[in-house]
Amino acid sequence: MTDQELQRRCHTVFPGHRARTPAEMFSAMAAWCEANGVEHDVYGSGALLQEFEAKVARLLGFEAAVFCISGTMAQVTALRLACQDRGRDLVALHPTSHIFVHERSNYQLLGHFKALQAGDRHHPWTVADLAAIPDRLGAVGLELPLREIGGQLSSWDELAAIKAHVAARGAHLHMDGARLWEAAAGYDKPLHEVAAGFDSAYVSLYKGVGGLGGAMLAGSRDFVERAAEWFRRQGGNVIHRSPYAVAAAMQFDERLAAMPDYLRRTRFLYQALQAHPAIKVNPAAPQVNMLHLHLPVSPERALEIRRELAERHGVWLFNRIASGVLAGASSFELYVGDNLLRASDAQVVDALALFAAALEAPTRQA
Score class of each variant (00 low, 15 high):
Leu6Arg: 13
Cys10Phe: 14
Thr12Gln: 05
Pro15Asn: 10
Pro15Gln: 03
Ala23Phe: 15
Ala23Glu: 14
Glu24Ile: 02
Trp32Cys: 06
Asn36Cys: 06
Gly37Tyr: 09
Tyr43Arg: 13
Leu48Trp: 03
Glu53Trp: 08
Lys55Ile: 09
Arg58Tyr: 06
Glu63Leu: 11
Phe67Leu: 11
Ser70Ala: 14
Met73Arg: 07
Met73Asn: 13
Val76Pro: 01
Ala78Tyr: 07
Leu79Tyr: 02
Ala82Pro: 00
Cys83Lys: 02
Asp85Glu: 15
Leu90Asn: 06
Val91Lys: 08
Leu93Ser: 04
His94Met: 05
Glu103Thr: 01
Ser105Asp: 12
Tyr107Phe: 08
Leu110Lys: 13
Gly111Leu: 03
Asp120Val: 02
Arg121Asp: 13
Pro124Lys: 05
Thr126His: 13
Ala131Pro: 00
Asp135Arg: 11
Asp135Leu: 02
Leu137Gly: 11
Ile149Tyr: 12
Ile149Val: 10
Ser155Cys: 04
Glu158Pro: 05
Lys163Val: 01
Ala178Glu: 11
Arg179Asp: 15
Leu180Arg: 01
Leu180Val: 14
Ala183Trp: 06
Tyr187Val: 00
Leu191Ile: 03
Leu191Val: 01
Ala195Lys: 01
Ala196Trp: 05
Ser200Trp: 04
Ala201Gln: 09
Lys207Ala: 12
Val209Cys: 14
Gly213Lys: 00
Gly214Arg: 09
Ser220Gly: 12
Arg221His: 06
Arg226Trp: 13
Gly235Glu: 11
Gly235Pro: 03
His240Lys: 13
His240Pro: 02
Tyr244Val: 04
Val246Asn: 07
Gln251Arg: 07
Asp253Gly: 04
Arg255Ile: 03
Met259Thr: 10
Arg265Val: 00
Thr266Gln: 09
Leu273Tyr: 12
Leu273Ile: 12
Ala275Cys: 09
Ala275Pro: 09
Pro277Gly: 11
Ile279Trp: 10
Asn282Lys: 09
Asn282Gln: 12
Asn282Asp: 09
Ala285Tyr: 03
Gln287Glu: 15
Val297Ser: 07
Ser298Pro: 05
Ser298Glu: 05
Arg306Gln: 12
Arg306Glu: 11
Gly314Leu: 03
Val315Gly: 03
Ile321Thr: 04
Ser323Glu: 15
Ala329Gly: 08
Ser331Asn: 07
Tyr335Gln: 13
Ser344Gln: 11
Ser344Thr: 14
Val348Trp: 04
Val349Pro: 07
Asp350Glu: 15
Ala351Trp: 03
Ala351Leu: 04
Leu352Lys: 00
Leu354Gln: 06
Ala357Lys: 10
Ala361Leu: 05
Pro362Gly: 07
Ala366Lys: 02
Ala366His: 08
